[in-house]
Design a protein around this nucleic acid. Structure first.
Lengths: 203, 203
DNA sequence: GCATCCATGTAATCTGTTACATGATTCC
DNA sequence: GGAATCATGTAACAGATTACATGGATGC
């Protein structure tokens, strides 16, 4: 009897994948998750610890106590053969229902949906802040993307960074378009106004 | 002493906003949420009921029993003056920390991050499914966007639909670019390849 | 006769965040 | 001396999903 997968949870599998890429401590995995998958699958530090414990108990990873001096001791985790199989099964699994949908939570958009309650100045402020935030985020991802250029082993990580980068650019474009609409210089969604949409970005 | 807001919750405020737009039953609000805000702030039906109860108890909305024959009775909710003030305060509030960040959860992207565990065929399949899903989603939003063209009162709802539409197009573009990369016809992020990025969409 | 829509809610469970607790070391 | 980094974990709670339960009306 195989050790019962108990409805595999995506967060758990992502952590399994990170361990599969490199054997590290919970602390390091959490830090790496924040630098990489956080853009499409955020994981809090405390959850890393609990999921690591669960994965170990399922036999998908194995922890080793590592003594250090001048630093606190730590436990590093390595993927097992069973873990590797479970990971490959998940990664290569055919489209399970809902697997292609993104679940987005954007407070800024939610608020903007009700922008009829805002004053015109508040709208401009909200859009400007949103655009600046998206721009900063895009620039951070651009840096990541560039940094990974000469690391072929991070090819797919780089591909997901490109994804985030493109999305961030789209957000900037949308916010700028909305600012133009607010200013009376464009019509919603119209493509004939000055560079409203489809602006050619360079990555 | 005002009835203590107890750290306003975004889901709650979104529901308050929906009630503010139109007085409806919990059932109808859930349905409307699924058609409108679900793209950037999904809310499950059962949560609508519990949040409505909470909002009523806070005095931000007021419920009225409505008898119907040939249909089960229902309770419709209307926003109160206090609710309107709370809504305006939230909607027009200056950028609270983290208010501009989106929290995205995409299982497809998470999986693709580990695409090194896939076979080339699996990669193509995953990307194709993802692209088709994004395309269908974009088309649905395009329909919404078009439908709202002559409803000035839904201007900002239409603006958020445009947002979703642009994002969906970007996802399609990314997936197609990745397919080209997989096929060996393009380099990751290169803009000189045949229409990889920055393709001019028409809304 | 069966599925679907209308309509409301509860219960169980899971997921996820934040705060708390501890303690050495290193850098400024 | 004080802040930050390394390192692990627990506990409390908030947020959210799914399944369960009920029942009439309508449409095929």
């Amino acid at each position: 009897m195989t050790p019962r997968a108990a409805t595999p949870n995506t967060t758990s599998l992502v952590i399994l994948g990170l361990v599969g890429r490199r054997s590290e401590s919970g602390y390091d995995i959490a830090a790496r998750a924040a630098r990489s998958v956080a853009n499409f699958w955020p994981i809090s530090r405390s959850q890393v610890y609990s999921e690591l414990a669960r994965l170990e108990q399922q036999g998908l990873i194995r922890g080793t106590h590592v003594e250090q001096d001048r630093r606190p001791d730590k436990r590093t985790f390595a993927i097992t053969a069973a873990g590797d199989a479970a990971l490959a099964a998940w990664v290569g699994s055919p489209g399970s229902p809902g697997a292609n949908g993104e679940r987005v939570r954007s407070e800024a958009l939610a608020r903007f949906f009700f922008a009829g309650w805002m004053t015109p100045e508040q709208r401009v402020q909200a859009l400007t802040e949103y655009r600046d935030h998206a721009r900063a985020h895009g620039e951070a991802l651009q840096a990541t993307f560039d940094r990974l250029a000469d690391r072929p082993e991070s090819h797919y990580g780089r591909a997901t960074a490109l994804f985030g980068l493109m999305q961030a650019r789209t957000r900037v474009t949308w916010a700028e378009h909305m600012l133009a609409v607010e200013a009376g210089g464009a019509e919603l969604g119209a493509r004939e106004s000055a560079e409203p949409l489809g602006r050619r970005p360079h990555y």
